[in-house]
Design a protein around this nucleic acid. Structure first.
Lengths: 236, 236
DNA sequence: CCGGCGAATATGTCTAGACATAATCGACAT
DNA sequence: ATGTCGATTATGTCTAGACATATTCGCCGG
């Protein structure tokens, strides 16, 4: 047993009480002065430990009142955004990208584009992710050329736009909406599935500040891709 | 303009440089001593500001080398776990819960149950969430009675087990898997939809430490429920 | 019984130090 | 060229204070 640092030990002790259920939501933590006494440390150290728990969402603090185990735990989890290439190769299959079309203008619904709030001319890219040459997922993407001017010179014939954007464009905010859909006629034909086949649809908007960077709609036939979200307090 | 606190201002300034793209991934932040000079503060204050960015995942620090804008940004987002009742009432509809069955033992696939790692006897609950008396989603749940002994005395005829568990049982870890499925015959009949109708399926395992608390499989016909995940650096 | 006011108190923020530690860099020797 | 070693340096951790500020609680008067 190494001894990392005192404030980490305090964090671990307090988190343990919470995780075990001994301190239920709403329970008041020991005051900083009590922690000082218990661990023989300065107030800054006790305070820092409790702040770590606050930043993890485990604890809420109120002046004069104290620190409390927070309730809403259940409301969120960390969603792992899959890298499609990695997901396919993780299944032991070969990854390929096939560009279907690349054109100026916005090839998405008006509602979706409005939410993006683009400021410049748009570029639309449509293509298929392939696993062992079989369709794995359809990608329909709109890129704001004001946010990613270099995209104009990129054909996206070899490199899927998702990977390209990740490497070339900074962004600060993203929103994902996940739903199940029956594919429309064109999507079903492209993916080689029936209209009746359930598909997982991910729509993602990406912004830098208030300005839209890109919107993408990805459609995966059922069974090919699972999205995973986890909640683990100590993580990060 | 109010002036909140100095370290918050430093955090905001640094985060702004990162969000704007001015400091790309890999860029080195100013040293703490440089921040002390620039803001006229003590080192602890500068250090605290950078630590906040670390806890947000925006920055990584290496001794002697300095602090750097971190790369992997894209890999995760915060998934909002919907409260089904709130989702339905948010649509302006009335919420209802109809219990279909409540029995001892595990009514789920062996694989799903193994992952749960239950330690006590199991209770299975099956029921439907209703919006304006129409089926909204099917819930099939397994509860480990060792983790939630009070569940034995609860009929779940009035209260859906999700809400009940949230209020009565503490947990520390959860895993969600989201997929699109075509409902099997029984599920389709219960939900009043065709087998061809795409459905969103959420499977959720909940643990306290290593011991399983509950496993649930929820199935929603397409169009009724969207899952939303967001990435916002300053959030929390 | 209720409402307002003041005192007590826990956290919020910050300073000015101190010593510890790991990583880097450069000088030096091989 | 290459490898070793020690000095340097930036962060890691912590102390012992200080003043600020929001809440709560109890007292007291109406």
């Amino acid at each position: 047993m190494t001894s990392p640092s005192l404030h980490r030990r305090i964090v671990a002790d307090l988190a343990g009480e919470i995780a075990s259920g001994a301190w239920p939501p709403g329970h008041r933590l020991p005051f900083e002065h009590e922690l000082m006494r218990r661990y023989g440390c300065a107030r800054a150290t006790a305070s820092r430990a409790v702040h770590v728990l606050v930043s993890q969402g485990l604890v809420e603090r109120r002046r004069r009142a104290g620190s409390f185990v927070s309730r809403p735990h259940a409301a969120s989890a960390v969603l792992h955004i899959p890298d499609i290439r990695a997901a396919i190769e993780g299944r032991g299959q070969d990854y390929d990208w096939r560009l279907l079309s690349r054109m100026d203008g916005g090839g998405a619904s008006v509602v979706d584009l409005e939410r993006l709030n683009p400021i410049g001319p748009l570029l639309s890219v449509r293509g298929v992710h392939l696993a062992d040459k079989e369709p794995f997922g359809l990608e329909e993407r709109v890129i704001d050329l004001a946010a990613a001017p270099q995209a104009e010179a990129e054909s996206f014939a070899e490199v899927p736009p998702g990977a390209w954007l990740l490497a070339h464009v900074a962004w600060s905010e993203a929103r994902h909406e996940i739903s199940a859909v029956n594919p429309d006629r064109r999507t079903a034909a492209t993916l080689g599935v029936e209209h009746s086949r359930a598909c997982l649809a991910v729509r993602r908007w990406t912004w830098r500040g208030a300005a839209g960077v890109t919107f993408v709609r990805q459609t995966f036939p059922s069974g090919l891709l699972d999205l995973v979200a986890e909640f683990t307090p100590g993580a990060r």
